[in-house]
């Protein structure tokens, strides 16, 4: 059982990653796909942050009386990744809006049908 409890945070991030992957592959609605991509990203964030955690450590802000800090490097990487993720999500949403403009639909299956009809 120790492999389960020792690596608990990693299990959580794997579960979330698989949930995000399932949404991206299986759902045809483009909005839902974007939410799935977001869940996938968050699982990676959780994975990085949980690697940076140190037992008995505190937040990496220097203060008298604290000696053990969690690793600041993953925090920095993920901090910027979150802001980049919202920017890329915005680009994705803009694409979805344009697709809706063109096909009057945001569902993958319907769009495929419409494309076949046009040909």
């Amino acid at each position: 059982m120790s492999i389960f409890f020792d690596l608990y945070a990693y299990w959580v991030s794997i579960l979330l990653m698989l949930a995000g992957l399932y949404i991206v592959i299986d759902h045809t609605n483009l909005f839902k796909k974007l939410i799935g991509v977001n869940i996938f990203q968050t699982s990676v964030f959780i994975f990085f942050i949980s690697m940076g955690k140190v037992d008995g450590g505190t937040a990496p802000i220097l203060e008298e009386g604290y000696r053990v800090f969690s690793n600041p490097l993953p925090h920095v990487l993920i901090l910027t990744a979150i802001v980049v993720s919202i920017a890329t999500t915005a680009v994705g949403l803009a694409l979805v809006v344009n697709i809706n403009q063109r096909f009057k639909s945001i569902d993958e299956q319907e769009i495929e049908k419409l494309e076949l009809e046009e040909e």
Binding site: A59, I61, L79, T80, I82, V83
Partner: peptide, 8 residues
């Protein structure tokens, strides 16, 4: 610089 926070 002193607490959590920053430009982002």
């Amino acid at each position: 610089d002193y607490g959590p926070g920053g430009g982002f």
